[in-house]
Design a protein around this nucleic acid. Structure first.
Lengths: 303, 303
DNA sequence: TAAAAATACTCCATAGGTATTTTAT
DNA sequence: ATAAAATACCTATGGAGTATTTTTA
């Protein structure tokens, strides 16, 4: 009969691409893993893996089964966490993912507040783009993530923590430096600098400036907001920057001006998300409060 | 570690209310079931069942775990059912690539026959030139391709489906209109019209007319055979056309004459190919039969 | 020929069975 | 006293390890 061990091995194999590598990752010998995969194939009545001298590639059925297996394994892990979740709120380990356009600005305050209020909490942190974090969250490799909505994954529960207004960063000597532009003004603006592909901030900036001429977009993208602001300071263009980053001191004094948009101001919703099947909702609701406290400083002020 | 067996026993126990009854329902002895429940309690770190002389009642935690266990077991059963849905030959999804000089003429009959004989088959179709299809096939983005030999990729298995004779398409008023030319005659023929670069039909036509004066080749190439035949009809030149296309009605009645070559007649071999390492050879062999049925109509007749 | 997976075999952990004891009503 | 679950103890299945062979590029 199908066993969790088989599903676990298949799930690992799906990521590893080699029986040997997968066995190493799973902490067993290669024949042990091979036998379990073979047994799973016998049970399911069809090949899950294409073997070759180059390694292992999943068949379509195998990929389908592996996907379901990953979800099942995540559900089992949640089940195992059930008992621990009955302890104190926000105690024990919590694996938290945060996107790059939030992490460096939120973390200092978040860690401060969390450490003071929940001394038993041990946060394991991971920074990556939304797509990666959502996949890892669904697979049970993370307990919760902090990201910008929407996430587009039905098995997740989302709880908004705070709104984060987008501001415009322009060189200090720019003609825009002294007035609040309407969105339409951007269309005639200098080159729009963006993060590299995969960062939601990039997509949001493009959405905000939907009508912008694509030819004025840099084909390469920066990895960090700090780099973007350096480019702005050097006069290479303008960029959108979240107020969260500005409040955290990301702007470069003197060389970059930060300007509010005229109404309607563009904004993003920063939210916490977790697997709906997780038993730790109580923890996550408390986490939402922490993120809100750490994040929505100064959202009422202009800059 | 948690096992599906433990979850299954707990799930049964939740319904039975007695260890003994549950054991009977599960088809094992009472101590066996008791031991697994106890192990599960040890793993989860808390009691799941209240034991009494009257029987077994789940604790709050136990009921929660049992509910999740039932869901997980259902997911596993769904996973096990997956394979059966795909068990039959040529059922489920098959990603098929076909080259442009075959696709529009083969597809109507192929889809008809396939739909009638293998109703569970879902074909995902992709049309591109041989080089692209072979690359995608090797990369695992396609399951099989229908193309003209040779393919020149050692990791593929090729199975010939049918032979496709090349015919000559000439304007209705051409001096060639009434006789069967030997290949050499082409050398003195009108301008030879070709598909654009990358299409194997172009290369094959050039091979057939190896000695032709390169200066009489059109520098631009057409994207489709239909366009070529329109050009022929308009008196811009002659072209090679596969009988497959003629049988499918590609020729333009009255304005284009289709002539068979004198022996030896040039021809191409239409074949199905797949990764040799693919486990679906049975499917592909059946596909070869379908392609043959759909493709080699009328190869015995002259036109 | 070299890398990867399959096979051969051996061992031992453990699930499961039977018999019995403990516990609670 | 009785019914139910736990414990004791034994057996056997099969999961896992090491060593080796087979396969394929």
């Amino acid at each position: 009969m199908t066993s969790l061990k088989q599903l676990r091995y298949l799930s690992v194999l799906a990521g590893a691409g080699h029986f040997g590598r997968a066995a190493e990752l799973a902490g067993v010998s290669q024949p042990a893993l091979s036998m379990q995969i073979k047994e799973l194939e016998r049970i399911l009545g069809g090949p899950l893996v294409e073997r070759s001298a180059a390694g292992a590639r999943l068949t379509e059925l195998g990929a389908d089964v592996a996907g379901r297996a990953t979800q099942i394994l995540a559900a089992v892990r949640d089940l195992e966490d059930l008992a621990f979740a009955r302890g104190a709120v926000l105690s024990g380990r919590l694996r938290l993912g945060i996107i790059p356009s939030i992490a460096p600005f939120l973390l200092p305050r978040l860690l401060g507040v969390a450490g003071a209020r929940y001394p038993l909490l041990k946060l394991s942190l991971r920074e990556s783009v939304t797509r990666v974090l959502v996949d890892e969250l669904v697979a049970g490799e993370l307990d919760a993530i902090v990201a910008s909505l929407p996430l587009g994954s039905p098995e997740l529960t989302e709880a908004a923590a705070f709104e984060d207004r987008f501001l415009l960063a322009v060189p200090a000597d720019s003609p825009h430096a002294r007035r609040s532009p309407a969105l339409a003004d951007l269309i005639s603006a200098e080159e729009l600098l963006l993060l590299e592909d995969g960062h939601c901030l990039r997509d949001q900036a493009l959405e905000v400036c939907a009508a912008i001429d694509p030819r004025r977009l840099r084909s390469f993208g920066a990895t960090s907001l700090a780099t973007l602001l350096q480019l702005v300071a050097a006069g290479h263009g303008i960029t959108l920057v979240p107020q969260l980053a500005v409040e955290a001191g990301a702007a470069i004094d003197g060389r970059v001006n930060i300007i509010r948009f005229a109404d309607p101001e563009p904004r993003r919703t920063v939210a916490v998300a977790w697997r709906s099947s997780s038993p730790r909702e109580r923890d996550f609701r408390a986490l939402v409060d922490l993120v809100r406290e750490a994040g929505d400083v100064g959202q009422g002020r202009s800059s």
